[in-house]
């Protein structure tokens, strides 16, 4: 009986401190410059297949993914509405942009997790799109790369690359500081639990689906 109580207490305290840790660490406000893209941005445009050879575990080698992020987007569609806006400036692996604004069916095509990974490596903290292809959305959430927000508005048509955006995660709202317009984002629904936990592994640990300590 005592053992059972101690077990319960240990479990409770782990979860309590874990949630406190999360609340402190999950970014509530995401702000930065917008990079605007069109509809049907597929995974070959996000990270062309010839670059899928680098290690995702090696911290130095994986910087290559940042370097080539969005390198497959044709010039006229790169950074709308004007186009010809480089996402990454020559030789760097981090972008000056923090938020991608996309149209419909963002991330369609391959299941390569290198796609959300390369955007995170390049410094992307959130994507706001009209809709997503299923596997890209799932990879973004389960892998904990960034938050894939959906918007009911045609945000890609109302935002210019370089506009300063502020996302309030808790309130699910977006403000374009450059234009002064505010938007309501779609609710994240049930995947918010995985996003809060960090990724599918942490979610499964918290729900007791897998042991809470890494072996």
């Amino acid at each position: 009986m005592q053992n059972l109580y101690l077990h319960w207490l240990a479990n409770f305290l782990t979860k309590y401190y874990f949630y406190r840790y999360l609340k402190k660490n999950m970014k509530q406000i995401i702000e930065g410059k917008a990079y605007v893209l069109g509809n049907d941005i597929d995974t070959d445009q996000i990270i062309p297949a010839e670059h899928l050879v680098y290690s995702l575990s090696d911290p130095e080698e994986k910087k290559n993914y940042g370097k080539f992020a969005l390198s497959g987007v044709p010039a006229d569609g790169a950074g709308l509405p004007d186009g010809n806006n480089a996402f990454i400036n020559g030789g760097k692996f981090e972008s000056e942009f923090a938020i991608i604004v996309g149209g419909k069916n963002f991330g369609c095509g391959s299941s390569r997790e290198h796609a959300p990974a390369c955007l995170e490596i390049a410094g992307i903290q959130a994507i706001v799109a009209e809709s997503y292809a299923r596997i890209f959305y799932r990879n973004s959430v389960d892998g904990g790369f960034f938050i894939p927000f959906e918007t009911p508005d045609k945000l890609a048509e109302e935002t210019r690359t370089g506009d300063k955006l502020i996302i309030d995660v808790e309130k699910e709202s977006l403000t374009n500081e450059t234009t002064g317009k505010s938007y309501t984002l779609n609710s994240l629904g049930e995947v918010i639990e995985i996003i809060r936990a960090g990724n599918i592994f942490e979610y499964a640990r918290q729900s007791g689906l897998i042991p809470s300590d890494k072996t």
Partner: peptide, 9 residues
């Protein structure tokens, strides 16, 4: 189809 994270899970 799934990504690396789901496959590792």
């Amino acid at each position: 189809g799934i990504g690396n994270t789901d496959a590792a899970f």
